[in-house]
Every structure is written in C-alpha cells, then in structure tokens.
Amino acid sequence: MTTTATALLPAVQEAIADALGIDEAEVLPDATLLGDLGAESIDLLDILFRIERVSGVKVTVADIGDLLQGGIPDEEFGDENEVVNDTGLSHLERVLPQFDRTQLAEPLTADGVLGLFTVQNLLDLLTSRTAASAA
C-alpha cells in the first residue's frame, strides 16, 4: 500500500463506519460497499462527502461510475439484455484488480457492476486523485 493509501485508510474506514453505523473493524479492504457492508446509494453519497470533509479529496458517485465503465458506451459495455459483455468484463478486470470473471456465479448485469466496488477500490481511486492533484 502506498504512503498516501496508508494515510487515507483510517479516514476511509471511519467515514464508511460512521455513515453506515457499523464498527470500523468491519470495514475491511476487500469488503464490497454495497454487498458486504450493505451501503445504499444515499450512504455512498454520505461516505464520499465525509471523506472529502476530512481529507479534502473529492470523489463523486459519477466518478466511480466513470471508473467502472471507462467511458465505454452502454451499447458496447453490455448486450441487449443488459448483461455485461466481454468488452465490459475486460475493462472491469483492468480497473478492479480483485475482479475475476471466472468467479461469477451468474452473468453480470449492468445494475450489479457497482456492487463489485470494494473499500480497497475506493481507496485506490482516492489515492489516484490525490496523486493527480499533486502532479
């Protein structure tokens, strides 16, 4: 973990725990925000604003969406049944280091993509934002 990520981790854990009303010890790096920690979209908004207040690093839900879809148009990211296709899955494997399509129990649909996003992925996004603003 980089120095920036190490420095940001406590703030991220505290923000998530406070927004969700859970113990910080539950906020493990590989926990998914929506699935494992039970966050709803309003919680995501709360978490991101809490992080911005304490760290000054601004990330929006739209930024997470941009990361996950990488600017690939919807019609190229998934098929007509909204199932993420090879192009989409390849992109997700690039941006989410833990994601492995062979581990999917069922086809991944568009509304399930945000559910892949983990605490570590958020930390990585914040770290890259910090690096970009420092450059």
């Binding site: 979209s41 309003i42 969406g65 568009a110 509304d111 399930g112 993509v113 945000l114």
Partner: peptide, 21 residues
Amino acid sequence: RFAAKEAVLKALGTGAAGADW
C-alpha cells in the same frame, strides 16, 4: 425527489453510478 431519482435508476436497471442524479 431523491427517492424519485433512485426509483428511476432502479427502473432503468442501472446502479447509482449509471447516470448523474
């Protein structure tokens, strides 16, 4: 209105990151 935006995102079958609020 916040609930409405969420409801529409659900109806469209996309997650919260599918469109800006």
